[in-house]
Design a protein around this nucleic acid. Structure first.
Lengths: 225, 225
DNA sequence: ACCCGGCTGTCGGGTTGCTGACGCTTTCTG
DNA sequence: CAGAAAGCGTCAGCAACCCGACAGCCGGGT
């Protein structure tokens, strides 16, 4: 991946857009490129981390895990995206683990680099604050969902998130039921039942590995706290 | 509350320490003072908010609520503390509600004020990033707890949080079982049982309204994910 | 001092969701 | 292309937890 390409990747992220091209190319010259295979770990929770990542290609999930192997997925990123910002700020341990869900290409921005950039480019500092705000909102919402919604509601909500704004009817996916279960913090079997129940009521159409949103409004209703 | 006193309050917060006294006094001159009675709301989730708060006296809880009146407490603040930063960053809606749990005195910093300060004082920007990092860590931990711990474990953990570092044995409190329940997202009755169970095993001593930590290690073990 | 309101402690019944199990189908991989 | 691995669909049994109810207690206000 050449310099220009790396600079282009940076340009598409919220964090690095809005700075001038020259600076961006300078940064692009300093980042390391790291390729991770599907299933491979990018970093692990509780370990110290001094780098932030920019996702150039592929997909990465962030999650927390328990001692006995259970995991809860917090978010799944696709380009353009950045992650690993939190540990960067205070140099503390990673608050979550990151794993590639498919072969991915990452750009690594070091702590020192970013800190310097924060000082010189105030737009980056503001963008970073916005990014953190988004993270806080998302995570807070997740707490709220876990506390107030039953499994069916959480599944409904997650389907809507996955479908994005497939305006009327939506599309197919690359998410297994087990993964879906870890997103909503439930057992795979129970998630299966929830899906079937939603389907039997005609809110979604779900066969095999894909699903389709039929009655968006009803789903949103189920997903309301 | 006079200017000097306000400046002193600011000086004790992570956000405003580290800037020079003159600047701090200037800010102190711009903040509004707001007094809220016990049980009164400071701001409400989903409403737009353009102010950040510094807690000068009293105590404030942040929480999210469901349509049918259920609430989950995210954190309880005591001075020195700041809250309401998130909505400030992007001007978006409040991600949670805030309510005084006792008579409190607040300083109100406006969005414009803080944004200007961020630009002129880079140490403030860095402190704000650290503050947000803390929030993310705390909330992520809460997701993890809800996903992995049973009620007993969550209660154990919350007791440890409430006790702080009452190094060997700890202290009495002003938290009802109903409040404790909302902190761990459980029913009041079940929390009661959890307390009794912990007591019967000699991990805590809990009578009436207060509790005391007897076997910190065991509690921590229960609270591990 | 007394009364009222809120808090604690405790039951029992009813759900929800987890666990383990198993057969079938689909998807990788050599 | 064949075998292995992963994923789906489904069931029965079981544990955790919620909900409504209610009796005693305590504390605070008038």
């Amino acid at each position: 991946m050449d310099l220009q390409k790396r600079a282009d990747v940076l340009a598409r992220t919220e964090l690095f857009q809005g700075i001038d091209g020259a600076t961006r190319r300078r940064i692009a010259g300093h980042v390391a490129v790291r390729v991770v295979e599907r299933g491979q770990c990018v970093f692990t929770q509780d370990q110290s981390g001094d780098g932030m990542y920019v996702l150039a290609e592929g997909a990465v999930k962030l999650y927390v895990s328990s001692r006995d192997g259970g995991i809860v997925e917090l978010v799944r990123h696709r380009p353009p995206a950045t992650f690993g910002e939190v540990a960067l700020l205070d140099g503390g341990p990673r608050s979550a683990s990151a794993e590639a869900t498919e072969r991915s290409v990452l750009l690594v921005v070091t702590r020192g680099e970013l800190l310097a950039l924060l000082r010189s480019e105030e737009r980056v500092a503001e963008a970073l604050l916005r990014t953190l705000g988004t993270i806080v909102r998302r995570t807070t919402r997740q707490v709220s969902d876990l506390a107030f919604l039953d499994l069916q509601g959480r599944v409904a909500r997650q389907l809507l998130v996955l479908a994005g704004n497939g305006n009327g009817v939506a599309l197919t996916r690359q998410v297994t039921q087990a993964e879906l279960a870890s997103m909503v913090s439930g057992a795979r079997q129970t998630v299966n039942q929830a899906l079937r129940s939603l389907e039997s009521r005609g809110y979604i159409r779900a066969g095999g590995r894909g699903f389709e949103i039929v009655d968006r409004e009803r789903l949103e209703q189920l997903a309301e706290r």
